[in-house]
Amino acid sequence: MTSHPLLVIAAKECRDRIRNRWVLAVAVLFALFALAIACFGPAQQGLVGFQGIAPTIASLVSLVIYLLPLIALILGFDSVVGERERGSLDLLLSMPLTRGELLLGKYLGLAAALTLATVGGFGVAGAVLAPQLDAYAAWHYAGFIVSALLLGYAFLSLALLISVASRERTRASGAAIALWFALVLVFDLLLLGGMVLLGDTVGWLFGALLLVNPADVFRMLNIFSSEQLQSYYGLATALPGALTHPVTLCAVMLAWIALPLAIAGRLFARA
């Protein structure tokens, strides 16, 4: 039985991450954070214990929005430039597969590892909380996991673009950290600053700009999935409905997955 070279590459990438315990470590991290937030999140209101799915997801979103992009970038930045620098890329490229297949195989393998860790970690936490979740809450929790995966895939795609475009590993790691900083921390601050300076007149522009950042798309996906959360954030009125429709948001997220990968493919094929 022979499998397509693309799948052979994907299987190796995923298996490597399972064998070096990367998947396990990230899954444990996610499970612990999710359980801690579920149990101790409401402590500021003087309560201990699970207080419902909406506040739990709200806190998880704030955590995942920092953590998952960083994890995805670290997972992917080395994948091409690392093999190039160590010297194993030459032999790999001489195999019967195209550069595009090699890149896509690596992406799929790493995405599978990220999926195992994310679904495993949050899944275990969800299983522990299951007795306290009704169908509606479970559905929202599942939605949160799917949106977290999309966020991870988008940053993994950016990580591969960095990996293909960088000449050295050290530069790639620098670029990955800089990108994380820019999209996760600086971007929102700039938007807030702009809103304060320009006022309400161009509110629609800021709403549209939020779509330019996969981290913000992830936040909106979770906020606008629950009316309770919308009122928490008081954001519902600031943005036009069409922009915040889950289908629009998911489409934007898919574009964030496909575009960097496509550009990486073009760059890699030319090298």
């Binding site: 010297g87 030459d90 032999l91 001489s94 019967p96």
Partner: peptide
């Protein structure tokens, strides 16, 4: 490619 066997100079394989 299937009909060619290639050994690069200073071959690097996967340590793990």
């Amino acid at each position: 490619r299937r009909r060619i066997g290639y050994l690069p100079e200073n071959v690097v394989l996967y340590d793990n």
